[in-house]
Nucleic acid binder design. Structure first.
Lengths: 239, 239
DNA sequence: CAAAAAAGAGAGCAGCGCTCTTGCCCTGGA
DNA sequence: TCCAGGGCAAGAGCGCTGCTCTCTTTTTTG
């Protein structure tokens, strides 16, 4: 950082690191995480396999880097979708975000499997992944927050047995929202990825053929589930 | 099949096959599907690795056998839960089935990952798995069918763009149910496994702590989503 | 310019899925 | 009773994997 030569070395390191991740992502898209091979990455990059260990101490560390990148890629995609629908009503924004998440998943199936599929046994995602993983949740929360401050939210009452946990989640995630809403949001968040995962992992094969309208309807119902009400079928009723 | 001696041979084969699957399941529970190794299975069974290929032509075929067993295990579990709640109302039966599915998943996390987690790339589950995989869907459908013939179902209208696909799915899955119900059921089916998968795969870590009441509430809302109405909070209103 | 730090190269270890060949032994028919 | 045929285990071996260690080359630094 003090001298330019040190910067040159550091820059080279950054470039090689990026090249490794790029090639790894290519192999991920081609063969999946299970068949991601350090040797194959090195071969393709014209270096020897052991040299890779100068950049990533293990295969798992390379995977972790790819996981964070994937979360960030998804997060950025949905944030952009949210921003692009800023003028629309909350139901429309909710749908836009959900559909952006689905589109990202369909476009990056192996990266989706990496972050929302079965975890590799014996591999615990380090805490480093948490901020990137949270981005989509923050977007969904923001939509509900605006709706809460604006037209309001319609939520079913909580059963007594859930009261304590709902309050705890609310304090953690969105203290300015009603616990009923936070609970419904967390459930909808999981359910959204149930829908996406079933489509991506083949559970809908021979069951749902025309997935786009099906997903749109399911997401609209999800919006109702978190209490979003639809003024004039999602038309910009806010502005 | 004609002579008892031939039967002795066949019986031995069945026993060895079962022993291989048992040991494979043990390793599955210990290490996960990715690290399931034919050599380790053979080692544990006191045979040489190549001998396993007399019973399963490849690692994938062994996995397929485990997948079918897992689907059947889950299917049987939820069928029993359904039968045990036969006297209750449809909402209670729905919840019982969903909670049984969750309990099975928590008790067999690696087998769950095998059937509802990311698919192994290059491995397409053969058509043989379909009947076993369908069992839980059939149970859920049966609940809705009885409710449809009894107290009735409350379903939101379908958007025009979904009409054709909804009719197609209905003809395929449950021609005696309204297309609105079938569409909602398929979505709820996917969403149920979104909830279970998020809990199992660690997405709820540091988010939802007291999972049982949370899941119960989510499942109750899922029941509402498929149109099940709750006479006196799920009490046996069918009489 | 020499010392030190970083990176690459290559050999090697232990493990993997899978294939092929060899030979044992059980079984069913003559 | 004997014998051919076939099911089956064993072993060697191929090409691959992640990872470690040592040695050399390159680059940065005092």
């Amino acid at each position: 950082m003090s001298s330019p030569t040190h910067g040159a070395r550091a820059r080279a390191r950054i470039e090689v690191t990026a090249a490794i991740k790029d090639e790894a992502r290519r192999q991920l898209a081609a063969e999946g995480a299970a068949k991601l091979s350090l040797r194959a990455v090195a071969r393709e990059l014209g270096m020897v396999s052991s040299a890779l260990y100068r950049y990533f101490p293990s295969r798992d560390d390379l995977l972790t880097a790819l996981i964070i990148d994937a979360y960030d890629s998804l997060g950025e995609t949905v944030e952009q979708a949210h921003a692009a629908a800023a003028d629309a009503g909350p139901v429309r924004r909710w749908s836009a975000v959900c559909e952006a998440a689905r589109a990202w998943a369909l476009g990056h199936p192996h990266e989706y499997a990496l972050i929302y599929g079965s975890p590799v046994p014996g591999y615990a995602a380090p805490q480093t992944t948490v901020p990137a993983a949270s981005r989509i949740g923050l977007v969904l929360t923001a939509i509900l927050r605006e709706a809460h401050q604006g037209p309001g939210l319609v939520t079913p009452p909580l059963p007594a047995e859930l009261r304590a946990e709902a309050d705890r989640m609310t304090a953690d995630l969105a203290p300015d929202l009603p616990p009923e809403t936070v609970t419904a949001l967390v459930a909808a968040w999981a359910q959204l990825f149930g829908l996406i995962g079933f489509e991506l992992f083949g559970q809908f094969n021979r069951v749902v053929e025309d997935r786009e309208p099906f997903f749109r309807q399911a997401v609209a119902q999800l919006a109702r589930g978190v209490g979003l009400v639809d003024p004039q079928h999602g038309d910009a009723g806010k502005g």
